[in-house]
């Protein structure tokens, strides 16, 4: 069984950063449309969404053998998933940075941002997050990736890491009490986000379980990939970082957080939110890393 060795940790970081950036923008867009137009939920998405995706794209660029030729990738627009992805990513970055510029320091307020821009941004954010799964999903030579569940798994995990960034953002907000006075208390919002994310984590865990169960019965190569995760070379990362720190710990913390009364133990809740946020990000990166590196090709005979 031969593992793919062509794509390594740079690509894993790219998949993670693009997913997290798209995820946190999705949160901002949903908050804008869901009536919860709290600046506290919108700002992380606007300030970090596009920059994170840009950082990821930069890593992808560095991974190219010939980075200076990257524009060739859009010369044949729909030929390859990489071309499609380059276009989706570019449109998202354009919208995201425009949105950021509109809200930039000393500039106009949220009202100045046209709704259609946010809606379009949300569509391309979902596109960016899903695309990272499709990039791997269309590779028929690697059965472990060649699975319709993968884009959904990456999408849910992206949304969750986006919420993770919002939970982390809460600690930064906490430092400036002036902001809290102006915008109202952030804790109830943090608790709401924790509640929503605990739902997402349950969904992600089910998708991951389903994904692995399908894969273990999809031929020798896919079964070997599953074996690498659950009992082979990547078992430590899988059980400790993906399952333990990435799913179970934040799930427990979030359920506990959402049950507390906001008035009590305020500082504690902010810290717990930040810890959950960090866990979610570590889990999301680890998940992509091991799925990428455990990609085994079918044996030739």
């Amino acid at each position: 069984m031969s593992l793919q060795t062509n794509w390594g940790s740079l690509v894993a970081w790219y998949l993670f950063l693009a997913g997290a950036g798209a995820g946190v923008y999705m949160v901002a867009a949903l908050a804008t449309f869901g009536g919860k137009s709290s600046r506290f939920l919108v700002r992380p998405g606007v300030f970090l969404g596009a920059p994170l995706v840009a950082a990821g794209s930069l890593l992808l660029l560095l991974d190219l053998g010939r980075p200076e030729r990257f524009l060739y990738a859009v010369l044949r627009p729909f030929s390859s998933m990489i071309s499609v992805g380059t276009i989706i990513l570019s449109v998202f970055l354009l919208i995201g940075f425009w949105h950021l510029w509109l809200l930039g320091p000393g500039r106009r307020k949220e009202d100045a941002v046209p709704r259609w821009l946010v809606a379009l941004g949300a569509i391309f954010a979902v596109g960016t997050a899903t695309y990272t799964g499709l990039l791997l999903g269309v590779v028929r030579a690697i059965p472990f990736w060649n699975n319709p569940l993968l884009p959904f798994l990456f999408l849910v995990s992206s949304a969750s890491s986006g919420l993770g960034i919002v939970l982390l953002w809460g600690v930064l907000q906490r430092r400036s009490t002036a902001l809290e006075d102006r915008e109202g208390p952030t804790l109830p919002i943090l608790q709401d986000m924790a509640r929503i994310d605990s739902g997402l984590l349950v969904l992600e865990a089910l998708l991951l379980l389903f994904f692995l169960l399908v894969m273990v019965n999809s031929g020798p190569a896919a079964a070997a990939s599953v074996g690498l995760l659950v009992s082979g070379g990547y078992a430590a990362i899988f059980w400790l970082l993906v399952i333990g720190i990435g799913l179970l710990l934040p799930l427990g913390l979030e359920i506990w957080m959402s049950r507390q009364h906001a008035r009590q133990a305020v500082t504690g809740l902010h810290t717990l939110a930040a810890i959950s946020g960090l866990c979610l990000l570590a889990g999301s990166l680890s998940l992509r890393y091991i799925i990428l590196l455990a990609g085994a090709k079918m044996p030739l005979w």
Partner: peptide, 20 residues
């Protein structure tokens, strides 16, 4: 024309492509 993205290497079922 090659940008060295190695998508072709990942996608080759026979693993017969090399990266310089």
């Amino acid at each position: 024309k090659c940008i060295g993205c190695r998508y072709c290497q990942v996608s080759c079922p026979y693993d017969v492509r090399s990266f310089n």
